[in-house]
Simulated assay, not measured.
Amino acid sequence: MGLIESLRGGAQPLRLDALSEADVPFRTGHFLAYAPKDFHRIAFVDWGDKDARRVVVCVHGLSRQGRDFDPLAYALARMGYRVVCPDLPGRGLSGWLRDPELYALPQYASDMAALIAHLGISEPIDWIGTSLGGLTGMVLASAQDAPIRRMVINDIGPFLPWAPVRHIGDRLRDAPRLHHNLASGESRLRIVLGAFGALTDEHWRHLARHSFFPEPTGGWRPHYDPAIGQAFRPGRVYSVSMWRDWDAITCPVLLLRGAQSDLLLPETADEMMRRGPRTYRVEIPGCGHAPALLDPDQIRVITDWMGPAS
């Protein structure tokens, strides 16, 4: 049974490249957000009933973009949620920042707070964040009067050891700036994102389709601003501790951990269970950093924990 067939309970299979034609509303949108001396575009995909009471915001990892969440967003929208999947600045269809030093958590949190305000919703939201998206959610959820009802954090925690952070930065800075064709870009993704788990060819095609943009002069470039890697220059990478943010969070959390993850260490996950918010933990087999959330079983972990929109 294919991915979308499984999500629909055995109905006629629906291709990932046809999700926008699915039986739930699908929209794209954008707004202007502010950085010092700069307004920039924040783009997003918006699934489900625009007037739904329950809204989920899904935020991607460092070098990814919002279309990674298409199958999960589709499943949640069919459960009655409105699901908004933004591209962080410098990624996807969002604008690039003029000052690359601003590619950091304070700006991401500010932009996502602006997104919540732009949506014009009165009820607290649910948050699903992979890696950097999880850290951004932690920053927002730790603030006083945070409008976050509950969170899913995918393979990230309040302590990041420097070695895997350095590896991520090296991989990002060393990435080719141009591929001759989309197939070459997909081959690169299969190597650098191998820790995502055992994805199908359809999954890889879907990721590649939204990870590279055609250049007018030929070739395909990665969707992100290469300057997002400047924060990982030699001498600027160190272990990160955000325990103060974690301890300030009061909403319930579903913590997903790739069983082979080197970024969310087992001892960090253990400590997250002992302190901070009430947390339910699930280990995802066959994955490192980070589970792709494309597989039906991974999606089901989230949908079962969240339940139907009410």
Rank of each mutant, 00 (worst) to 15 (best):
G235P: 10
Y224G: 03
D225Q: 13
S261P: 08
A248M: 11
G258C: 09
A227K: 12
R233W: 02
P252S: 03
V253R: 00
P252K: 02
D262G: 01
V237Y: 10
Y224R: 07
R236Q: 13
Y238V: 06
Q260R: 09
L264N: 01
A231W: 02
R236C: 11
A259R: 03
R244Q: 13
Y224H: 15
G229D: 11
V237T: 10
A259G: 09
R236L: 14
S261N: 03
W246A: 06
P234K: 02
S239N: 09
P252R: 00
F232V: 02
V240M: 00
L264M: 05
R257Q: 01
S241T: 10
Y224I: 09
S241G: 05
E267D: 14
A231S: 08
A231H: 01
A248S: 13
A248R: 12
S241Q: 08
Y238K: 14
E267I: 14
T250E: 14
Y224N: 09
P234Q: 07
R233V: 11
V253E: 06
H223F: 06
S239G: 14
F232S: 05
L264F: 05
M242V: 04
W246V: 13
Y238A: 15
E267Q: 15
M242K: 11
L265E: 05
R257I: 00
G235Y: 06
D262F: 00
A231N: 04
L263D: 03
S239C: 07
I228N: 07
A231V: 04
G258W: 13
R236D: 11
D262W: 01
H223Y: 05
L255M: 02
R244L: 07
D247A: 13
V253S: 04
L264I: 07
D245Y: 13
C251H: 03
Y238M: 12
S241D: 13
Q260Y: 09
A248L: 06
L254P: 08
V253N: 03
D270N: 12
I249D: 10
L256A: 08
M242Q: 15
L254T: 10
